[in-house]
Design a protein around this nucleic acid. Structure first.
Lengths: 194, 194
DNA sequence: CGTCTATTTGAATGTACTCAAAAGCGGTGG
DNA sequence: CCACCGCTTTTGAGTACATTCAAATAGACG
């Protein structure tokens, strides 16, 4: 059932009595999201943290020339949000939409704040979650400073092995920070070089 | 005194009785760090979280061609660490050293874990700290995907206004991800274009 | 004053983008 | 089943952005 994936993740970090688990689940809203449907658009305030149970979402920004830059994919088991907007409840810069028909769990900022007070164990869970996200962005930033486009592509394949086969290449290009034409070129050059 | 800056930051997030504060302070080690002295090198395990009280540190990676890529500067009031290494207690990829003679507070991973158990309020403090770091890396990653070198330079000036005047330009170049020659070129072109 | 490092300048090169057009690949409706 | 549509991928030519390398200039400091 929809909550299981999230509850399993939580139980790896903290142990939760049944009543607390029930309370937590009562705060979650299940939402079905159709392909291309938005969960957030630029200038909106991110009111909920989003946990993906089925399908896949993406978070991206659009630059002043109208080009998309994908920051993150969120397959099942991943959280996604414009974190600055969620934290400070101010307008964000990200768009979040569904790549495939998806199902997500929503936890509103106000319920989350309440949750921290009622069940301090969730402070720990979200601390650990944030630390890991922080750590992975730190390394990703290092990669973006020090690796070539091809190396970033290989990293991507390692990070999202399940996605690489079902995503259009242009979305991968957007994630690693090159144009679709250029990614196509370096991948084909590589093959013929064998 | 050395602890005040950190205690002030903490008190903005959580309120701490005197005895808990004393316990926390007892876990901290003050360390003086000379310019160019290392606090961490590649392949080492980050055993402590580092909080800067005086001077300035930097965290950077060295790529396979021997070039430095600065990930972060840490002036007073900032924490710095190879977060993945600290979290998982495994070898990291960052170097951390002092740009100027500095003073830092060290909180070891084991003491920190103990602290979370003894004083749950610190779960909250470090959750908030991690969330903010996460949020700022998220936006920085968007910037690196969507902004030009000159725009990233302007962002840097906003982020580290106190540093921009005392850092050698080549270190700023390293942070924004271009060569010192190129940064010099775009800054001078800009001026003559007036 | 000399030494060390940072900055600037310029030429040649490489990396990545733009634009345009062609080719491929599902899906859908007739 | 085929023809067509929309979207992705490929290809190529021309251009812009950014690096490399080398050398000259400028600043900081003992």
């Amino acid at each position: 059932m929809s909550y299981q994936l999230l509850l399993d993740n939580i139980s790896k970090c903290i142990s939760l009595p049944k009543d607390e688990e029930d309370y937590f689940v009562s705060l979650l809203k299940i939402k079905k999201v159709k392909r291309k449907q938005f969960l957030l658009q630029e200038e909106e305030v991110q009111k909920q943290a989003i946990f993906v149970t089925e399908g896949c979402l993406r978070g991206y920004a659009i630059d002043k020339n109208g080009f998309e830059h994908i920051l993150q994919f969120a397959p099942p088991g991943w959280w996604i949000a414009d974190m600055n907007s969620l934290l400070n409840q101010e307008p964000g810069i990200l768009y979040i939409d569904a790549i495939f028909n998806s199902e997500v769990l929503l936890l509103s900022k106000t319920d989350q704040d309440e949750l921290f007070i009622r069940i301090p164990g969730f402070e720990r869970f979200f601390r650990i979650l944030s630390e890991r996200s922080f750590a992975s962005y730190q390394y990703r930033m290092v990669d973006s400073l020090s690796l070539s486009a091809l190396e970033r592509y290989h990293n991507f394949c390692k990070l999202y092995p399940s996605l690489i086969e079902c995503l259009p290449q242009k979305q991968v290009a957007s994630y690693i920070g090159v144009t679709p034409e250029f990614l196509s070129a370096i991948l084909n050059k590589k093959i013929s070089a064998k």
